[in-house]
């Protein structure tokens, strides 16, 4: 089942590789493979080194990607899965489809240590509330935010990875008090959107004072639009991290090539593409190599991150509390 059926139609037209090259199929989320995402540049760079045909297959967002892997199970066509975050790792592990990567990964530059034997990070970011620079007295923690009357837009943790990230942020910062934080936030939340795009769109539309996004979001406006009117609120509790990872599918026929790709993933040829295409921090690139503009971003002092197993363990209860608090 590992011989990929040669895609007909557009996929074939788009592929310039010779038929006898080995093919590496990487499942990822949709925005990774779009023309302005990292996919096209990374594909070209890797194919220069591997004498192979790298094919990205986009599938919705990170959660949709995992769902696709789940549906395909042992019949999956993927050699590598790229784009899950730490909150999804435990579910992915339970599917028993990911091989140990066997890579030392000594070049990682993340603010936390990393020793997962199956998944390797390729980029990361801090969740944060983005607001206009004209906002007076932005809150500096969740309690301030809950006590004030600012309007915020967030994403639904049942349908979006940033939404789930926020749930874990409050959970990791407040533990047993998380429910009372959500009760306090209920009257600040204008609405909850299915995904990041809708929330960010509503914020840009002026429907809310702040939106849940990333500390790197202002970099897009600054670098791509030369607009410095967006910033983020630094929270004293610390900021929860989103770490995006990749893993090798254990039934792949291209294990060697897959491992080669995972190693390539941590080299500058891959890492330097990330900041201005995915608008996240590269996982293995020294800060001085980031593009101009990234130095203006806030760098939280306390990174928060639950281990994949802890995140899995608290998810259901945290979700119930969230739903109860916001359904009042």
């Amino acid at each position: 089942m590992k011989t990929p059926i040669i895609a007909s139609g557009f996929a074939l037209l788009a592929s310039t590789a010779m038929a006898q090259d080995s093919v590496l199929i990487v499942y990822t989320y949709d925005s990774f493979v779009s023309d302005w995402g990292p996919g096209p540049q990374i594909e070209a760079a890797f194919e220069e080194t591997c004498a192979c045909d790298l094919q990205f297959v986009g599938a919705g967002d990170g959660a949709a990607l995992l769902a696709r892997l789940f549906l395909e199970g042992a019949q999956t066509g993927a050699d590598v899965v790229l784009g899950l975050d730490t909150n999804l790792i435990a579910s992915a592990r339970a599917m028993d489809l990911i091989a140990p990567h066997g890579i030392a990964a000594e070049t990682l530059t993340m603010p936390i240590s990393w020793d997962d034997p199956q998944f390797l990070p390729y980029d990361w970011g801090y969740f944060a509330f983005v607001h206009g620079t004209d906002l007076e007295n932005p809150p500096s923690n969740f309690r301030d935010l809950a006590d004030g009357d600012l309007r915020i837009v967030i994403q639904d943790p049942r349908s979006s990875t940033p939404g789930l990230g926020l749930l874990m942020w409050v959970q990791s910062a407040y533990g047993d008090e998380a429910a009372s934080i959500w009760e306090g936030l209920a009257d600040n939340i204008v609405t909850v959107t299915p995904g990041w795009s809708e929330a960010y769109g509503l914020y840009l539309e002026g429907e809310a004072d702040m939106v849940l996004s990333y500390t790197t979001s202002p970099a897009y406006h600054l670098i791509a639009e030369e607009d410095d009117s967006h910033t983020v609120a630094a929270f004293e509790e610390g900021h929860y991290m989103q770490v995006e990872v990749a893993g090798i599918v254990n039934i792949s026929n291209e294990m060697e090539l897959a491992r080669q790709f995972m190693e390539f993933m941590l080299t500058p040829a891959f890492q330097e593409v990330i900041p201005t295409t995915n608008w996240m921090y590269p996982a293995a690139l020294p800060a001085e190599n980031l593009p101009a503009g990234f130095e203006t971003l806030i760098m939280p002092e306390t990174p928060l991150l639950l281990s994949p197993e802890d995140a899995q363990a608290v998810r259901v209860q945290a979700l119930d509390e969230w739903q109860a608090a916001l359904s009042q």
Partner: peptide, 25 residues
């Protein structure tokens, strides 16, 4: 289409959604 799509075979709504998801309002 989001369940099936190949990167090169996006439809217009999908392409629009991709633009939105990449800050390109």
């Amino acid at each position: 289409i989001t369940l099936f799509a190949a990167p090169q075979a996006g439809t217009l709504p999908l392409e629009m959604f991709r633009l939105m998801g990449a800050y390109r309002t």
